[in-house]
């Protein structure tokens, strides 16, 4: 499935949810989001987007928190599954863009590419639910229902890798959607009333 198409579906369903993005999802989501004041990309500290999302979910249980993680990113912070399961936030939805590669660094394969199942790992860790989708139609038909369920839930989306070249870098600084990290934190805190 095309990750941009999947994100377009998610944008229509997010409501006022906070969306935390990592690595390859950052640019793709920024181009689809219609509520940037509630978006926060975690471009640094690989793998920690889900941890930031957990903190936000615990702080604001009345707000849905969606994290758009990468498979390589999640592998670098796999203990997050147990940490999230332990606190069991009902408002946390952990999406994993499973493209099987490190897309921002040229498309090198992740360890155990095609062998491991993040959905099964999440269930084994204690997530309330876990789903896998490899086509857009099926995801579109079920996404709204998943976001109505109690979390923590994992949703694995099998996406086509969009490999970035060295010239492209991780994310363009001059894109129209680009905001500095400090601007994004300030916007999010203002939106949540915690500024």
């Amino acid at each position: 499935m095309d990750q941009g198409d999947a994100m377009a579906v998610l944008q229509e369903l997010r409501g006022d949810a906070v969306v935390i993005t990592a690595m390859a999802a950052i640019e793709a989501w920024a181009q689809k989001s219609k509520l940037p004041s509630r978006d926060l990309p975690i471009a640094d500290a690989m793998g920690k987007a889900s941890s930031v999302a957990l903190g936000l979910a615990l702080a604001r249980p009345e707000v849905k928190v969606i994290v758009l993680d990468g498979d390589g990113s999640l592998l670098s912070n796999l203990g997050t599954l147990a940490t999230i399961a332990g606190k069991a936030p009902k408002n946390l939805y952990h999406f994993v863009l499973e493209n099987g590669v490190y897309a921002t660094t040229g498309g090198q394969p992740i360890p155990a590419q095609g062998l491991l199942s993040f959905a099964r790992l999440a269930l084994a860790a204690g997530y309330a639910s876990a789903y896998e989708f490899d086509n857009l139609e099926e995801f579109t038909a079920n996404a709204w229902r998943i976001l109505e369920e109690s979390g923590p839930g994992m949703v694995c989306l099998k996406t086509v890798p969009e490999i970035r070249s060295a010239e492209q870098g991780v994310a363009p600084q001059d894109a129209p959607w680009h905001r500095s990290p400090l601007e994004m934190v300030a916007d999010l805190r203002k939106s949540l009333g915690t500024a």
Partner: peptide, 24 residues
């Protein structure tokens, strides 16, 4: 006081960041 046990210390900084941005 709410205890948040982590699996590895690197998570702690990120979780604390989320809590802080969420007003805790």
């Amino acid at each position: 006081l709410d205890l948040v046990p982590v699996s590895q210390e690197g998570e702690s900084m990120a979780i604390a960041a989320g809590l802080t941005m969420g007003g805790k």
